[in-house]
């Protein structure tokens, strides 16, 4: 049952609740860095890494530090500072100990602090924690959800990079050139993700 629910959370985060295409979080990197496949992958991996790390840290802090002390209202400010601090820390550690990884991922890190997908994930997983129902998220669910969110981001970015490479060579009306046609393409990619609605519940019924 636990494994089943974890798999369902993971798949839902990638397909039916895709953060970029269904929840509109992290649109800026989606539109900005998706032009080339390698930058798209690099950005997504960095985002995934920070998402999981941020959730791993903020989840216990919220549950065991803020809530018991009636400080839940400090959530936004505490989370954003934790994320900013974490990103800096990761950057320093990577630079010092794993320079090769820093070369490929580190460059994206400073941009991630203010990426709304990261803050969004850390906050949304906490909304699903509701001890009064059977649908509550545990720490494991939260981590799996943020991993799924990152992978979903990767999937969306890679797909979109493919679509955009086709647009490059297409003959586009003048006023649609650049950002407008990119958004129309994003609309079509989002349309394809609508097809997944209900898919996870059918695949893995939890009742």
């Amino acid at each position: 049952m636990l494994v089943k629910s974890l798999v369902s959370v993971f798949l839902a985060a990638i397909l039916t609740e895709n953060y970029v295409l269904c929840k509109f979080l992290g649109i800026c990197p989606f539109l900005g860095v998706s032009k080339k496949l390698n930058t798209a992958v690099g950005m997504s991996v960095a985002v995934t890494f920070v998402m999981v790390l941020a959730t791993a840290v903020t989840f216990p802090i919220y549950q065991y530090l803020l809530v018991p002390n009636d400080l839940a209202y400090l959530q936004t400010i505490v989370f954003i500072l934790i994320i900013a601090g974490l990103v800096q820390l990761v950057e320093i550690v990577l630079k010092k100990y794993i320079p090769s990884l820093y070369q490929s991922l580190g460059v994206y890190l400073p941009l991630i602090t203010t990426n709304c997908a990261i803050l969004g994930v850390t906050m949304l997983v906490l909304q699903k924690v509701d001890t009064t129902t059977a649908y509550t998220y545990t720490y494991g669910h939260a981590l799996v959800n943020s991993l799924g969110a990152g992978v979903g981001f990767l999937v969306a970015m890679v797909m979109f990079a493919g679509v955009r490479s086709r647009i490059e060579t297409a003959d586009i009306p003048k006023s649609l050139k650049g950002l407008p046609i990119t958004l129309v393409a994003a609309s079509l990619v989002a349309l394809s993700f609508l097809g997944f609605s209900g898919f996870v519940d059918k695949l893995i019924p939890l009742q």
């Binding site: 509701d130 009064t132 649908y135 609605s197 209900g198």
Partner: peptide, 9 residues
């Protein structure tokens, strides 16, 4: 009572 819908609770 609560149940999980499409986007959340």
């Amino acid at each position: 009572s609560v149940a999980s819908g499409y986007g959340g609770q």
